[in-house]
Simulated assay, not measured.
Amino acid sequence: MLLSFLFPSRKVSTMVPGNQTQFAEFILLRFSEKPNEEGPLFGLFLGMYLITVLGNLLIMLVIGSDSHLHTPMYFFLSNLSFVDICVVSTTVPKMLVSILTQNKAISYAGCLAQMYFFLLFACLDNILLAAMAYDRFVAICHPLRYAAIMSPHLCNLLVLFSWIISFLNSLIHCLNVTRLSFCTDHEIQHFFCDLAEVLKLSCSDTLFNYIFIYFVIGLLGILPFTGIILSYSQICSSILKIPSAQGKYKAFSTCGSHLSIVSLFYGTEFGVYLSSSATHSSWKSTVASAMYAVVTPMLNPFIYTLRNKDIKDAFRRLISRIASSSSQ
Rank of each mutant, 00 (worst) to 15 (best):
residue 222 I to W: 10
residue 47 G to Q: 01
residue 72 P to T: 04
residue 323 A to P: 01
residue 119 L to N: 14
residue 216 V to E: 07
residue 4 S to R: 11
residue 213 I to L: 12
residue 112 L to M: 14
residue 283 W to N: 03
residue 179 R to M: 08
residue 271 G to D: 03
residue 269 E to C: 10
residue 177 V to T: 09
residue 79 N to H: 09
residue 269 E to W: 05
residue 18 G to A: 03
residue 305 T to K: 03
residue 211 I to V: 07
residue 97 V to S: 14
residue 257 S to D: 10
residue 328 Q to P: 15
residue 179 R to S: 09
residue 265 F to G: 08
residue 76 F to E: 02
residue 270 F to M: 12
residue 140 I to L: 07
residue 47 G to F: 06
residue 17 P to Q: 09
residue 13 S to Q: 12
residue 291 M to F: 07
residue 233 S to T: 15
residue 194 D to V: 14
residue 240 L to N: 15
residue 278 A to M: 10
residue 20 Q to T: 15
residue 260 S to H: 11
residue 59 I to G: 00
residue 82 F to A: 08
residue 190 H to F: 12
residue 249 Y to Q: 15
residue 199 L to A: 05
residue 98 S to G: 11
residue 14 T to Q: 02
residue 83 V to W: 04
residue 50 L to H: 00
residue 198 V to C: 13
residue 312 K to R: 14
residue 94 K to Q: 15
residue 168 L to G: 01
residue 30 R to P: 07
residue 169 N to P: 02
residue 184 T to A: 14
residue 72 P to S: 09
residue 33 E to T: 08
residue 51 I to T: 02
residue 284 K to S: 14
residue 88 V to W: 03
residue 285 S to V: 06
residue 43 G to E: 06
residue 85 I to R: 11
residue 80 L to C: 03
residue 292 Y to L: 02
residue 184 T to P: 02
residue 88 V to N: 04
residue 131 A to R: 12
residue 85 I to E: 08
residue 80 L to V: 05
residue 1 M to P: 14
residue 24 A to Y: 05
residue 309 K to T: 05
residue 45 F to I: 01
residue 315 F to V: 04
